[in-house]
Amino acid sequence: MIEALFNVVVGLMIVGGAAFSLVASIGINRFPDVYCRMHAASKAGTLGSGVILLALAVHADDTATVMRAIAGFVFLLLTAPVAAHLLAKASYEAGYKLWDKSVKDEMIVKIREQKTKREHRNEN
């Protein structure tokens, strides 16, 4: 009885993780600019992959497999958002434009401040 419950929980987790991964892939294909696409990939993709790894941890009988799945989940949570942030910042500095209908560009002020600080340091 308890094994059947575990199988149902694992199945629901796998389907949920796959659904989040599907939403991430649709977002990558449908969103208008590189920044929105990165947001979809990092948020929904990380959640989908993480839930599937947790399903593996629930399903596995081996302690080593459970620990590897949990370590993979933690690694995903720690690295994917940071990587997406760094890629977005590098894309902005490389000149990738925001979507035409974007309301506000808050990075332009920060980039100007950084350039001013660099120029001031170089003068001294």
Rank of each mutant, 00 (worst) to 15 (best):
M1C: 07
I2K: 13
A4T: 08
F6Q: 12
N7D: 08
V8T: 07
V8W: 01
V9R: 04
G11A: 15
L12Y: 01
M13Q: 13
V15R: 10
V15M: 15
A18M: 10
A19R: 09
F20I: 13
S21A: 11
S21H: 04
L22T: 15
A24I: 03
N29A: 12
D33G: 09
R37D: 06
R37P: 10
M38H: 06
H39F: 12
A41N: 11
A41S: 15
S42C: 08
T46C: 15
L47N: 00
L47S: 00
G48S: 11
S49G: 13
I52G: 03
A55Y: 02
A55G: 07
A60V: 09
D62Y: 04
T63H: 08
A64V: 03
T65D: 05
V66W: 03
V66H: 09
V66S: 10
R68A: 02
A71R: 06
F73E: 00
V74M: 00
L76S: 14
L76T: 14
L76P: 09
L77C: 09
T79M: 10
A80H: 00
P81Y: 01
A83K: 13
H85V: 02
L87S: 08
A88K: 13
S91P: 06
S91T: 11
S91Q: 05
A94H: 09
Y96A: 13
L98S: 01
W99F: 05
S102Y: 01
V103P: 05
V103Y: 11
E106S: 14
V109F: 01
V109W: 01
E113D: 09
T116P: 07
R118W: 00
R118Y: 00
R121G: 02
N122I: 14
N122E: 14
E123W: 02
N124Y: 07
